[in-house]
Simulated assay, not measured.
Amino acid sequence: MTSLLLAEQVLNGLQFGMMLFLMSAGLTLVFGVMGLINLAHGSFYMIGAFACASVAMATGSWFLGLAASLAAAAVAGVLVELLVIRRLYDRDHLDQVLATFALILVFSEGTRYLFGSFPLFLDVPAALSGAVTLPGGIAYPVYRLAIIAAGIAVAIGLFWLVGRTRLGIRIRAGEADREMIAALGVDIDRLYTIVFALGAALAGFAGAMLGTIQSVQVGMGEPVLILAFVVIVIGGIGSIKGALIGSMLVGLTDTLGRTLLPVAFSTILPPSDANAVGSALASLLIYVLMAGILVFRPSGLYGGRSA
C-alpha cells in the first residue's frame, strides 16, 4: 500500500468519524442529561436524509434541502419528546427501550408509506463537487472535506454552547442534579425539549450530509445508531469531548481496518479469501477497541459516571 493511499484512507476515517460525531453528540446529550435510552435516534438521521432529498429534488437546491433536514428532524424531535418521551422519564429503562423501539417501526413504516421502498439518490452540490489536491499530492473530494469541516464546526459550537452559555450551564446542571435545578426554578420540561430537539437536529444533519454520498433509504439510521452507541460507551456518557474522541477512534479503526487487514491477509491467502477474512475481522475491531477501553476505563475515556 502506498503512502498516498494510506493518507487518503486516514482522511476517509476522519470523515466517517465526523459523521459519527454528529450522531453521537446528540445521543450523548440526551443520554447524559435526561437519562433516556433512545433507540429512535437513528430515525431522526433517516428523517433528515429524506427531508434533504425530497426538498432538494423539489427545489433543485441542495442547501435548501440541508436546511430542511435540520428543521424536519428538530420538529420531529420536539413532537416525539412532547407526545411520547415525556411520559418515560420516571419509567424503567426497559419501558424506554420498548417505547423507542416502537417509534423506530412507526417512523420506518411512515417513511415507507410517504416515499416508497426504493432508495433516493442525491447529487453532490456543484459548489462542493470535484476534488482538490492536498499537500503531498493527494486528490481528495471537496464534499468529504466539507463533511470534516462541518463536524469540526459543530464540535466547536457544542463546546461553546455547553461551556460558555446559560443554556449550557443548565444542561450541565441537569446532568449533575436535575431535581436541584428544578427546585431552583429552571423549567426542566422545557430544557429537556430543547436538548432532545438539538440532538434530533444533529442526527438529521448527519443524515443529510451522508445521504448525499450514499443512497437515502428506509432503515438507514439503525446501523449508524449502533456505532453511535459504541462511540458514547468509548467516550463516556454525557461528554461531548468523549463523543468527539470516540468518534475519531471508531472512524479511523473501522476505515483503516477495512483497508489494511485485507492487504495483510493477501500475503498468506488468495485475494478473494483475504478480502473476505479481512473485512470480517475489520468489522469486529471497533468492538475489540470498546472492550479494551472499558477494561481500563469502565466509565469511558471521559465519562463522569459508570454506565
Rank of each mutant, 00 (worst) to 15 (best):
A155M: 11
G185A: 12
T100E: 10
D189I: 14
M46T: 11
G292K: 06
G77P: 08
R112D: 04
S279I: 13
G168H: 07
F44P: 02
G207P: 05
I240H: 01
G221R: 07
L244V: 12
R112S: 10
V124L: 04
F50P: 04
T133V: 12
A206T: 11
G278H: 07
N12P: 01
L294R: 14
I147P: 00
A173D: 01
V30W: 05
L134E: 07
I156M: 09
F296E: 03
Q217P: 00
R87H: 10
V78W: 13
L27A: 10
G199L: 08
T165F: 02
L252T: 05
L105E: 11
L260F: 05
V218M: 04
R170W: 08
G251F: 03
L128D: 04
R305Y: 13
L225K: 07
G157T: 05
I213A: 05
G303Q: 10
T2P: 15
I213V: 15
T100Y: 06
I171V: 15
F63L: 13
G174R: 00
G26P: 13
L79D: 09
F107R: 03
S69I: 08
R87D: 00
G42R: 14
G300V: 14
G199F: 03
L249S: 06
A150L: 13
L11R: 06
I268C: 03
D187H: 02
T165K: 02
Q15L: 04
A73V: 06
L158V: 07
G60P: 08
G219T: 11
Y113F: 12
A228N: 11
I226A: 12
L82R: 14
A182W: 08
G303C: 12
G204W: 06
G174E: 03
L105F: 08
A291H: 02
Y113M: 14
V142F: 01
G278Q: 09
L6F: 15
S108C: 01
L98M: 15
R91M: 08
L301S: 10
A139Q: 04
V55C: 13
I85W: 01
P271G: 11
P141R: 05
F21S: 08
S215F: 02
A56V: 12
V78H: 07
W160K: 07
G26L: 13
G278N: 08
S61V: 13
L202W: 08
R87I: 00
R172Y: 08
I188G: 00
L289P: 10
S272Q: 14
V216M: 06
D92G: 01
L66Q: 03
G136K: 00
A280T: 15
S283Q: 09
A208Q: 06
E222W: 05
L128T: 06
V224R: 05
G60A: 14
I213L: 15
R91Q: 13
G65E: 09
G199I: 13
G157C: 04
G238A: 01
F121T: 15
L198G: 11
G303W: 10
A206M: 11
R305C: 08
L6A: 14
A67K: 09
L105W: 02
V97N: 04
V295Y: 15
L39P: 03
A102E: 08
S61G: 13
I240A: 01
I213S: 05
G251Y: 02
